[in-house]
């Protein structure tokens, strides 16, 4: 696996999961808003892909997007989204999924079911 020519293009013409598309959409938007540059993105993604290769990960789209996620998390620190904030928010989402019964949309801050 090697650094792509255009780091903001998906590696194939198809996303297996929506989170993969969201990563590239967010990278594009954060660059446009000036939070980091296209060169920063290309470098971070290239490094993450190189690490994946060193670690012996398979040369797949899944590996590509996991590397892209690592790169996005790393660069978003510069925009003020810290590791601790991300971990806390991730736990909030997990909590929301666990508390939401089927048939209702998942939103953050869901109250405990059956209480009250």
């Amino acid at each position: 696996m090697h650094a792509p020519e255009d780091p903001l293009k998906p590696p194939s013409d198809h996303f297996a999961e929506p989170w993969q598309a969201t990563i590239l959409a967010m990278a594009t938007a954060l660059i446009r808003e000036g939070h980091f540059t296209l060169t920063d993105w290309a470098t971070a993604l290239g490094n993450a892909l190189a690490r994946a290769e060193t670690d012996g990960r398979p040369d797949t789209d899944e590996t590509y997007f996991l590397a892209a996620l690592d790169a996005l998390e790393q660069l978003s620190e510069r925009a003020g989204l810290t590791n601790a904030q991300r971990a806390e928010r991730k736990a909030d989402w997990e909590d929301a999924y666990l508390k939401t019964p089927h048939g209702q949309p998942v939103v953050l801050g869901q109250p405990e079911q059956g209480v009250g």
């Binding site: 967010m26 808003e33 978003s76 925009a79 989204l81 904030q85 997990e94």
Partner: peptide, 25 residues
């Protein structure tokens, strides 16, 4: 809770919701 998204999907949701909330994007 089989609707629980995968780990990377949750990491992306965390990033996306924070970035939108803080007005970054």
């Amino acid at each position: 809770h089989s609707h629980m998204p995968s780990d990377p999907a949750l990491r992306v949701k965390a990033l996306e919701s924070l970035a939108v909330e803080k007005g970054l994007v």
